[in-house]
């Protein structure tokens, strides 16, 4: 095992949970999240010598973009049913979270990625735009639409008062 492989293996072991959580929010589906993380890690191997040391930004960006690409390739899946044939009730029975999962599933992959990157990964608008390869204006408009949709679906205000961390 060479140094790069050793580094890669150690990173995956340490950070796969965090990657899976982001992937889960992006896909809304446990199995899709696993597939997404695996695909992104496999694709990152050729680039590993370049990104080793701080692979996280690259991988988060890759997760968001790969998810959108995969959705485009199999759009029928999104149409046939909400992502998440997940249990309709969370293990801890929190209704808000069930509502949020369903509402996220109703967003487009790009809107969902913007919500996740802005409010879970705490990226700025500029960093979100760079991660998704779109303009800041597009981020703003998608973000506005996504938040409106979430409010409407959840049926109560969604608190975004806390500003995201500025990177």
């Amino acid at each position: 095992m060479d140094a790069a492989e050793q580094d890669f293996t150690e990173y995956v072991a340490a950070r796969q949970g965090a990657l899976l959580r982001t992937a889960y929010l992006l896909t809304g589906h446990a199995q899709d999240a696993e597939d997404l993380v695996q695909a992104v890690l496999i694709k990152a191997v050729p680039h590993w010598p370049r990104i080793t040391g701080n692979p996280e930004p690259y991988l988060k960006k890759a997760l968001a973009r790969e998810n959108i690409s995969r959705w485009r390739r199999r759009r029928w899946r999104e149409v046939l049913g909400p992502p998440g044939q997940e249990p309709s009730q969370a293990p801890d029975g929190t209704d808000d979270r069930i509502d949020l999962a369903a509402a996220l599933g109703a967003l487009s992959p790009r809107q969902r990625a913007i919500v996740v990157l802005r409010h879970y990964e705490d990226l700025t608008e500029r960093a979100t735009a760079e991660a998704l390869g779109i303009s800041i204006g597009t981020v703003k408009s998608h973000h506005r639409d996504a938040m409106a949709k979430l409010r409407r679906l959840i049926g109560k205000p969604v608190d975004v008062d806390r500003p995201p961390l500025v990177h």
Binding site: G17, R21, V116
Partner: peptide, 18 residues
């Protein structure tokens, strides 16, 4: 929203077949 997303993310699988 951040806390809700964090809580929702806890439902993600914890490991992959690496």
């Amino acid at each position: 929203l951040h806390e809700d997303l964090t809580a929702l993310a806890e439902r993600a699988p914890t490991s992959i077949n690496d």
